[in-house]
């Protein structure tokens, strides 16, 4: 098991390097360079080309691609992501303030959707054909197919504007900093983010559970005289879990990079919101860093999925 994990982590290193390279290549291929972004077009027209060239040289832009990539990469490894073009703030600062907000939301949504989703899915599978199952199926389909911004707007309209239970948006009121104070702010975005995920997990857990329950070993387990709960949970659910874990694992990067819409709807100061403003102001270094972060999240998520599936399903442990 340990060798398996070590091997998976070692495979990650060259993959991460290649991804960094591709991201930097993307940055290189965008039209213009740092100088053309730094100086506003009106001023650039009146500037001496020699001056522009001198500025380029002073910024190190005259050096060949691979040299620049290497210096960018070594900085990256040391945690220095460069500077934002609008405002010149170190990107690592931006990430440090924005990422916790996003992670907070993602963690709540992930835990909630995993627990509730698989629970409802299992109930649905065990009571197949019943009214509960039909109701859950309909709710699940609605949850999967209705876009989340719609749920967000509906939630704001009902719970914030009409009932006044929760604040409309934001992460915290000025001056209130404890987790308890932030909780009311978190409820709506976290729940809305959870809806789609929960529905997806539920649908998946249901079909996976039904598949597991129709297998021969369930009959074997029953023929041994085991009680139903043990047949369903230990023999059925344990086997049904693998595909569900894979699904949840691959939703992880979506939660980190892709809660853009939810963060926008609820004015949540996370990475997603930062991403939108960076794209709007053509702040390439920030956009690239966030892209890099999302891709890394995918890598880490797939590592976690691989390890978890190996824990759950002994057939996966090929490294032994």
């Amino acid at each position: 098991m340990l060798t398996y994990i070590i091997r998976r982590v070692l495979i990650l290193i060259p993959m991460a390097f290649v991804i960094c390279f591709l991201v930097y290549l993307g940055l290189e291929l965008t039209p213009g360079d740092a100088v053309s972004h730094m100086i506003n077009p009106d001023a650039a027209g009146s500037m001496n080309p020699a001056q522009l060239e001198a500025l380029r040289q002073s910024l190190g832009l005259g050096q060949p691609f691979h040299v620049r990539f290497w210096s960018w990469f070594t900085n990256l490894v040391q945690g220095n992501f460069g500077y934002s073009m609008s405002g010149g703030v170190p990107i690592s600062n931006i990430i440090a303030t924005r990422l916790p907000a996003t992670l907070e939301l993602a963690a709540v949504a992930l835990v909630f959707s995993t627990v509730i989703g698989s629970l409802l899915g299992v109930v649905s599978a065990l009571k197949r054909g019943s009214k509960t199952d039909s109701a859950l199926t309909v709710i699940g389909m609605l949850g999967v197919s209705i876009p989340e911004f719609f749920f967000g707007l509906v939630a704001i309209s009902i719970f914030a504007l009409n009932l006044g239970w929760f604040p409309v948006g934001g992460r915290s009121m000025p001056g209130y900093v404890t987790l308890w104070d932030r909780l009311p702010h978190m409820v709506m975005p976290a729940m809305v983010l959870s809806i789609m995920l929960t529905a997806g997990v539920m649908r998946y857990a249901r079909s996976s559970m039904l598949d597991a329950l129709s297998r021969d070993f369930i009959k074997t387990a029953r023929s041994k005289g085991l009680p139903e709960w043990r047949v369903n949970l230990l023999h059925g659910f344990r086997v049904a879990l693998t595909p569900v874990v894979v699904l949840i694992g691959f939703r992880l990067p979506v939660l980190i990079g892709g809660s853009v819409i939810i963060e926008q709807v609820f004015q949540w100061p996370g990475i997603g919101n930062e991403f939108i403003s960076a794209v709007r102001s053509q702040d390439y270094p920030v956009v690239m860093t966030i892209a890099l972060l999302s891709v890394m999240a995918v890598l880490v998520a797939s590592l976690i999925v691989d390890i978890l599936t190996a824990v759950i399903d002994p057939r996966v442990r090929l490294g032994e």
Binding site: D216, T220, G225
Partner: peptide, 18 residues
């Protein structure tokens, strides 16, 4: 299982893989 036990046709699928 205790007094009447059963074995099945396909041993490949009758044992729980996990």
């Amino acid at each position: 299982g205790a007094e009447i036990a059963m074995i099945f046709q396909d041993p490949m699928t009758a044992l729980n893989p996990v």
